[in-house]
């Protein structure tokens, strides 16, 4: 296993109130595979990924559990060790490519920075070549020109390509992608997803993909983790989950999507019932 998350608990403290955003979550990611965490807003999926990256800040605290990456517990690692892991072995891309790129530096400068930090033995010229190569790899048109462009000049899809290039320059073992296509148009989304699976095949990168879009999950996932109110309610291979969903919450979620051909047009859709606490049902871990 590349990454094993065991009984992770992450809490947020507000006055006397404690919010267990991630409550006893366990799952693992095999090398070179894609694991999807699905859930609605507030289910704890993003907090899980931030916990792995060691990016939880006060008032949030990772209370207990283990995050084993290549056998080492990241929760017990020093800040220095975490800095050498982040960006080099585990990297992350976010939903909004505009806010995660620095608007006042060029694309090239920002990509170069990653190499300066993690591969300091390279010369300036070698770094430039690597950046251009990375831009070519993600299918950026005119990479030499784009090197000197600022992020605002790029389209949403191109910005996400830059983010992916940045995340992939050090050839990480694990790429965490937090809703990377949610802000994009469907046709651009299809291109970005295709790019990610192409890179995965070439480089053998494992992907932890966080999304609320079950259609996207069906397209890319090997394994699926369904989260609800901080808990994992169902865990299965993508094939098992979509052909035979077992947990009532998963079923409700799947039935709430209007699927052309499957759901009758203009019929009323099933919904997740806000008055039901789905945690009362036994977890379905396969």
């Amino acid at each position: 296993m590349l990454l094993e998350v065991k009984n992770l608990v992450t809490c947020f403290y507000a006055d006397e109130h404690v919010n267990r955003a991630v409550d006893n979550v366990s799952f693992s990611i095999p090398e070179g595979k894609t694991v999807c965490i699905v859930g609605e807003s507030g289910s704890g999926k993003s907090i899980t990924s931030l916990s792995i990256m060691g990016l939880i800040e006060k008032p949030g605290v990772v209370e207990s559990g283990e995050i084993l990456f290549e056998g080492t517990d990241l929760l017990k690692s020093s800040q220095k060790h975490m800095r050498s892991v982040r960006g080099a072995k585990i990297s992350m891309i976010f939903q909004e490519p505009m806010t995660s790129l620095n608007p006042s530096y060029t694309v090239g400068y920002q990509l170069d920075e990653v190499l300066k930090l993690h591969q300091s033995h390279l010369s300036k010229k070698e770094r430039y070549e690597k950046v251009i190569e990375a831009l070519k790899l993600v299918g950026m048109p005119y990479p030499e020109e784009k090197y000197n462009e600022y992020p605002f000049k790029l389209s949403g899809g191109q910005r996400q390509r830059v983010m992916i290039a940045m995340a992939m320059t050090c050839e990480p073992k694990l790429l965490i992608a937090d809703e990377p296509t949610t802000a994009l148009d469907v046709t651009i989304q299809a291109q970005v997803l295709e790019l990610m699976s192409k890179l995965q095949k070439e480089k053998g990168t494992a992907i932890l993909f966080i999304t609320h879009d079950l259609g996207v999950v069906a397209g890319i996932a090997d394994e699926v983790v369904v989260m609800y109110r901080g808990h994992v309610v169902e865990k299965a291979s993508a094939k098992e989950l979509f052909s035979d969903p077992r947990h009532p919450y998963t079923k409700a979620l799947l039935n709430s999507i209007p699927t052309p051909g499957k759901v009758k047009r203009k019929s009323r859709l099933e919904t997740v019932d806000e008055n039901i606490d789905y945690l009362q049902f036994p977890k379905e871990i396969r």
């Binding site: 469907v186 046709t187 989304q189 299809a190 879009d213 079950l214 259609g215 996207v216 069906a218 397209g219 993508a238 094939k239 979509f242 052909s243 799947l254 999507i257 699927t259 052309p260």
Partner: peptide, 12 residues
């Protein structure tokens, strides 16, 4: 056609 083709589908 392109737009319809890009809809993520749930098929297993």
């Amino acid at each position: 056609k392109q737009l319809l083709g890009a809809i993520p589908k749930i098929e297993f």
